Amino acid sequence: MPKHLTMDQLNEGIPSIEASPQNAGTLEAIVIRPATDQRQSLASCELSPKGGVHGDNWALGCWKSLPDGSPHPDVQVAMMNSRAIQLIAGESDRWPLAGDNLFVDLDLSESNLPPGTQLQIGEATLEITAIAHNGCKKFAERFGTDAVKFVNSPAGKQMHLRGIYAKIVEPGTVNVGDVITKRNG
């Protein structure tokens, strides 16, 4: 079983996360969840407003839904900073355990990506939503209780260390290695 980092070890990694690019980042990994507790890493993937991250179980129903029972578009795509997950999980083969779809080398902080900000990734355009993404029991089981305290701390929430949610506004294909550009929504 991998060793979980202590709060001190996690805090030592903050300068690296803070050094993430603010305007032109990179898509480092794509992960879909075909079913509960299943993960599949992809080199490329289609994104669409109707299907979300194609192959991910979001389109089959998720924890947040609209009154008609359909999955809520504001939680279509879960994104996490690749430097944060590298610190928390270590080896890249453990990144998918976080359950996020896109791992990006980009500053996800509230001050850099407020809700409404749009990101161009490959052919797709995403818009940051206001839904909070927090560490939970599963995150603690996979990465340790200090990791949850770290991402849910006031600084962790401001930096969005656990990640952010986005909705897809323009469909298209995204590929690992794609440049991510920020534009105001």
Rank of each mutant, 00 (worst) to 15 (best):
N152I: 06
A155K: 13
V174G: 06
G172I: 04
S153V: 08
F150M: 09
V174R: 07
V151L: 10
T173G: 08
V148I: 07
D178F: 12
A166S: 03
A155L: 15
G177N: 04
N175G: 01
D178Y: 13
N175W: 06
G172E: 01
T145N: 13
F150N: 06
R162F: 04
F150L: 11
G163R: 06
G163M: 12
K149P: 02
T173S: 07
F150Q: 01
G172W: 07
V169T: 07
G177H: 10
V148Q: 06
V148P: 11
N175F: 10
K167I: 00
D178I: 05
A155P: 03
K167E: 00
I164D: 01
D178N: 15
P171T: 04
M159S: 01
P154Y: 05
G156K: 06
G172A: 03
Q158M: 15
V174W: 14
P171C: 01
G177Y: 12
A166N: 00
G177T: 12
K167P: 00
V176R: 11
H160C: 10
E170G: 01
K157A: 04
H160N: 11
S153E: 10
P171H: 07
V179Y: 09
V179L: 15
M159W: 15
D146H: 14
I164E: 03
V169S: 00
P171F: 04
Q158W: 14
V179W: 13
D146S: 12
A166F: 08
P154N: 00
A147L: 11
A155T: 13
V174A: 05
Q158R: 15
N152W: 10
N175L: 08
K167Y: 02
N152H: 11
N152V: 10
V174N: 10
T173Q: 14
D146W: 09
I164F: 15
G156Y: 07
L161H: 03
